[in-house]
Amino acid sequence: MIRLSDPPIDPGALLTGFLEGRRETGAVVSFTGLVRGDGGVEALELEAYPGFTEPAIEQIIRDAVERFGLDDCLAVHRVGRIAPGEPVVFVAAAARHRRAAFEGADYLMDYLKSRAPFWKKSHEAAGARWVEPTPGDQADLARWETMETR
């Protein structure tokens, strides 16, 4: 499932909640992305299109669940203005075995970083600029598109 959050998120609490009540799951991998303050970044401003952004991310999650045979996934993404050091995204993937959980979380993050409908403005000492996916993000995505499904 996906949730957009205007207030700050608590990755520890999200992980604890995600772990609860499991009997079949043997592995959970989680990832937390923080806003980096390098390059004079004072804040990131994330804009989503509620009602459009969530279904697009749900599709990414369904693809990950199917591709890696996951039990389920959770993605929580901040929107609004986010300061350096604050969590901007949390994902967790649950599977019977660790390999699928690692790969599922990795895949989710790569697709979130380049395909999720967000518009991101970087507020920097020198001014504000809109951000597009980097060549590195595109290369990360290409890994999955050329890889054979196991």
């Binding site: 299109y49 901007v88 970083k113 967000f118 991101k120 809109w130």
Partner: peptide, 10 residues
């Protein structure tokens, strides 16, 4: 109607 410029990703 929403106009969506190229997306930044998350």
């Amino acid at each position: 109607v929403a106009f969506l410029p190229p997306m930044s990703g998350g």
